[in-house]
Design a protein around this nucleic acid. Sequence first.
DNA 1: TTTTTATTTAGAATAATTATTGATAAGGAT
DNA 2: ATCCTTATCAATAATTATTCTAAATAAAAA
Lengths: 144, 144
Amino acid sequence: MSDHDDRPPIDLGGGHRMTPQRREVYEVLMEHSDHPTATEVFMRAKVRMPSISLATVYNCLDTLAGAGVVKQVNVDREPSRYCGNLAPHGHFHCADCGTVLDIDLKNGAELAKTFKVPRGATVERFDIAVRGRCPKCAKVARAR
Amino acid sequence: MSDHDDRPPIDLGGGHRMTPQRREVYEVLMEHSDHPTATEVFMRAKVRMPSISLATVYNCLDTLAGAGVVKQVNVDREPSRYCGNLAPHGHFHCADCGTVLDIDLKNGAELAKTFKVPRGATVERFDIAVRGRCPKCAKVARAR
DNA sequence: TTTTTATTTAGAATAATTATTGATAAGGAT
DNA sequence: ATCCTTATCAATAATTATTCTAAATAAAAA
């Protein structure tokens, strides 16, 4: 087994370093494509790095999101979630179990043009959130 | 001047009454089409009904939203906003001044079909939020 | 009228997030 | 290497939006 780290370096810009904590938080997000909250990231990171603190996880997530290497996802007023999927996509949010699933936006660029934003406004990004019941919960609901 | 209330009655359903507080909160939302937060609604309602409390405003907003006569609008993790525009529409959120403006979705029904939600999932509603700079702030930014 | 149920209010409680502070560590210049 | 500056981390305090609790009030039902 090789003992060197052959992953490509990740530039965070703005004089920010890729510290062990930031790398760990980043790894946690890359491992699974679910959408963990800061607390969930904290719990997963803690397994391999017991000394990490929740405040640091918040800081890391903020830095990583600011650098654009992960995305912060907000559905309604629930705790923020984070994901490593950088491709343009929307989110499906289950009203019953709270799961968040990615929605592929095949025509993201097209879609953006259909929004009639106020004249003179500039667009930075857009978020699409669909709320309903995920397949599993929909099935349970039908059975009732 | 007539002293009777000739506004059409609003049914809140579920055994809920249209109380003076609920009516006041509802009026505040109908008066302007901006998107006040609960605290802003509270301040406006307090002018004509000084005894109203913030908790009551939260309760009223929740009841009105539950009955479907007003809409709760969430952008990012900011405080919830409320609006009386029941037509399907998206929201434009200014990154600089925080203003929230309605975006007309002429083809809301069409749009909904373009989302490839997970197979077997049921859709309840969808939210579209565009983030950027409103005309006023975009102009200021250009001047810099 | 009595009983029940819904509502309001003030204030306490909660939960997510941010801010503060002191300690530690990394980088660059000398 | 040594000094100096800046970034980072961890613990904990503080903040903020919102919800909960409990007691009082009011309206509807019986």
